[in-house]
Amino acid sequence: MSSQEHFDNESLQTLQEIMEDEFNELIELFISDSGKRLPAMELAWETRNAVGLRMEAHSFKGSSANVCARELSRLNMELEDLLRDRTPDDSEWQELHNKINAIRAETGVVHDYFQQMLQA
C-alpha cells in the first residue's frame, strides 16, 4: 500500500512537527473518535436520518482532513454531497450504504497506518 493514495504526507509531516510530543495523543484521539463515527453513521442510515448522517459525514470530513487523511476526507465529502439539500429515495439509500462501507474500509486503512506509526 502506498500511503500517498491515502495521505497528504507532506502535511502529515508538518502536523507531526507542530504537535511534537502531543502528536501521538492526537492520533489516538482521532482513532477513538473515528471509531465512534461508523456506528453513528450506521445508526443514522438505519433510521433513515439524512440530516444526522450528513452531520456525521461533515464532521468526519473535517477531522480526517486535519490529520491529513486525504482519501477518507474525500469519501466523507462525497457522502455529505449526496445528502445535500435533499431526502434520498430507497434506491439512493442503498447507494449511500455502499459509500458508508467505503468509508469503513478507508477508516480501517487509516487506522492501520496510524497504529504502525504509533508503534514505530
Binding site: 502536523l15 507542530i18 504537535m19 492526537l26 484521539l29 473518535d33 464532521s59 477531522s63 490529520v67
Partner: peptide, 16 residues
C-alpha cells in the same frame, strides 16, 4: 469546536 481532534490540533497550533 465540538470535534475533539480538530480542537486539540488547533489549540496546539495557536499555543505554539
Amino acid at each position: 469546536d465540538d470535534n475533539l481532534v480538530d480542537r486539540k490540533l488547533l489549540s496546539r497550533i495557536v499555543r505554539n
